[in-house]
């Protein structure tokens, strides 16, 4: 059922350290590798070797530039994003079929691919972009917190963590029970002032992000770089590109442009 449990026995989730993530995308790659054959597999791709490859990924790593207007200094922050396994998961309550559910025992949010109708409403309800539509299978896919790995007795104990955690070369990702105040991850969040993303969306995410540490030493003397000479965005929405549009949309676009 899409009723959310009043409380879950544990709150399994991730703690992501933005101070040490180097933006190597290894978490996304290993996630794809494990989950392509896991609970929600396959994670299909469309035209993987074509002009415009696309596919289902549970991890996406964004890179932001943060400018401090007071000191005029900037820094680059690599920002891995996956499902936050929210306590008040809106993606679950909007599901009309009951295919989406939040587990009472550990709080993991999952999709039953056998009953999902592929209406995409859950992806509209999620503020974080955690749910992706699998064009080939016609169902929604999402991070499972490697539910088929973390409880897998046939794996050595140290491997029973999500694929993104075990593969991170710098240890920027931690996994554990964020509902237990004495767990390693909870202590880490406490010590580093870990935060939830978009708290105003009232989703009560379980995952926490550790903000970059303050810089040591004085700021650089000369702050350079204005908005005019910044690097172009990789995907420019403002460009005149209309190739992706359908025939009718392109015709309307041309008619209105005159």
């Amino acid at each position: 059922m899409t009723d959310l449990p009043d409380r879950t026995e544990r709150k399994l989730g991730l703690v992501i350290d933005l101070d040490i993530c180097v933006g190597c995308h290894a978490c996304a790659v290993n996630c794809k590798e494990w989950n392509a054959g896991g609970h929600s597999g396959p994670l299909t791709d469309t035209a993987p070797y074509g002009d415009s490859p696309s596919g289902v990924w549970f991890n996406r790593i964004h890179t932001f530039e943060v400018n401090d207007p007071e000191t005029g200094t900037g820094r680059t922050v690599h920002f891995p994003k996956s499902c936050l396994h929210c306590e008040d998961a809106p993606c679950v309550t909007v599901c009309p079929t009951g295919a989406s559910y939040k587990r009472e025992e550990d709080g993991i949010v999952l999709v039953n691919a056998d009953t999902c109708i592929g209406c995409k409403l859950c992806s509209w309800a999620c503020p974080y972009g955690a749910r992706e539509y699998d064009e080939t299978e016609g169902v929604m896919k999402k991070c499972t917190l490697c539910v088929d790995k973390i409880y897998n007795d046939s794996l050595p104990e140290e491997s029973r963590v999500p694929a993104c955690v075990s593969t991170c070369p710098v240890g920027a990702r931690s996994f554990g029970d964020l509902g237990d105040p004495d767990s390693d991850v909870s202590r880490l969040v406490e010590a580093r002032g870990g935060v939830a993303l978009m708290p105003e969306q009232d989703t009560k995410p379980v995952n926490r992000y550790l903000p970059p540490r303050a810089r040591k030493g004085p700021p650089p003397q000369e702050a350079s770089g204005t908005s005019e000479d910044r690097a172009p965005r990789m995907l420019n929405h403002d460009s005149g590109e209309r190739d992706g549009a359908g025939l009718i949309a392109r015709w309307i676009d041309r008619a209105l442009s005159n």
Binding site: L18, H25, A28, S52, P53, S54, G55, V56, W57, R60, I61, H62, T63, F64, E65, V66, N67, D68, P69, G74, T76, V77, S123, E132, Y133, E135, P211, P212, R230, A231, R233, M234, L235, G244
Partner: peptide
């Protein structure tokens, strides 16, 4: 993040779902 936040690099070159 504290300060003026702007996307420097998208996760991938192509548009996703």
């Amino acid at each position: 993040l504290k300060g003026d936040v702007r996307l420097l690099e998208a996760p991938h070159t192509e548009a996703n779902y």
